[in-house]
Simulated assay, not measured.
Amino acid sequence: MADHSKIEWTDATWNPVRGCTKISPGCVHCYAETFAERFRGVPGHPYEQGFDLKLIPGKLLEPLRWSRPKMVFVNSMSDLFHKDVPEEYVRAVAGVMRETPWHTFQVLTKRSERLRELLNGGLREFAGEAHIWWGVSVENRKHGLPRIEHLRETPAAVRFLSVEPLLEDLGAVDLEGIDWVIVGGESGHGARPMQADWVRGLRDQCKESGVPFFFKQWGGVRKKAAGRELDGRTHDERPGPSRVAMATAEERAALIRGWERRAAAI
Rank of each mutant, 00 (worst) to 15 (best):
residue 153 E to G: 08
residue 60 L to W: 06
residue 179 D to E: 07
residue 20 C to Q: 05
residue 18 R to E: 01
residue 172 A to M: 10
residue 176 E to D: 10
residue 55 L to C: 04
residue 189 H to F: 12
residue 47 Y to E: 01
residue 180 W to G: 01
residue 45 H to Q: 10
residue 88 E to G: 06
residue 184 G to C: 07
residue 137 S to V: 11
residue 243 R to N: 14
residue 37 E to C: 00
residue 40 R to M: 05
residue 189 H to D: 15
residue 136 V to M: 07
residue 242 S to C: 14
residue 194 M to G: 02
residue 62 E to K: 14
residue 207 K to V: 10
residue 63 P to N: 06
residue 16 P to G: 05
residue 11 D to F: 03
residue 80 L to H: 07
residue 110 K to P: 00
residue 84 D to P: 04
residue 114 R to G: 06
residue 48 E to D: 01
residue 229 E to R: 14
residue 210 G to Q: 13
residue 122 G to D: 07
residue 148 I to Q: 02
residue 26 G to W: 11
residue 158 V to M: 15
residue 170 L to N: 09
residue 243 R to G: 15
residue 105 F to Q: 09
residue 92 A to P: 03
residue 36 A to N: 02
residue 58 G to N: 09
residue 135 G to H: 07
residue 257 R to M: 14
residue 104 T to K: 04
residue 95 G to T: 06
residue 185 G to S: 10
residue 162 S to N: 09
residue 226 A to G: 01
residue 24 S to P: 00
residue 256 I to K: 11
residue 218 W to L: 02
residue 201 G to S: 12
residue 106 Q to A: 07
residue 75 N to D: 15
residue 261 R to M: 13
residue 66 W to M: 11
residue 25 P to S: 13
residue 219 G to S: 09
residue 147 R to G: 13
residue 145 L to Q: 03
residue 95 G to S: 09
residue 129 E to N: 15
residue 82 H to Q: 12
residue 21 T to K: 12
residue 148 I to S: 03
residue 209 S to F: 08
residue 262 R to I: 14
residue 92 A to V: 08
residue 78 S to Y: 09
residue 190 G to I: 13
residue 26 G to S: 10
residue 3 D to F: 06
residue 36 A to K: 02
residue 29 H to N: 15
residue 121 G to Y: 11
residue 16 P to S: 10
residue 234 T to G: 09
residue 265 A to M: 06
residue 14 W to E: 05
residue 171 G to H: 05
residue 34 T to G: 08
residue 4 H to P: 00
residue 212 P to Q: 02
residue 136 V to K: 05
residue 176 E to G: 14
residue 10 T to M: 04
residue 251 E to C: 13
residue 234 T to L: 01
residue 205 Q to L: 04
residue 2 A to S: 10
residue 245 A to Y: 06
residue 42 V to A: 11
residue 133 W to N: 03
residue 102 W to T: 06
residue 233 R to I: 01
residue 12 A to L: 05
residue 206 C to A: 11
residue 3 D to C: 01
residue 12 A to K: 05
residue 134 W to V: 06
residue 118 L to P: 04
residue 202 L to C: 07
residue 74 V to F: 02
residue 172 A to H: 03
residue 88 E to S: 15
residue 96 V to D: 01
residue 208 E to I: 01
residue 169 D to Q: 02
residue 58 G to F: 04
residue 182 I to R: 03
residue 46 P to A: 11
residue 244 V to M: 12
residue 72 V to W: 01
residue 53 L to Q: 13
residue 77 M to G: 06
residue 14 W to R: 02
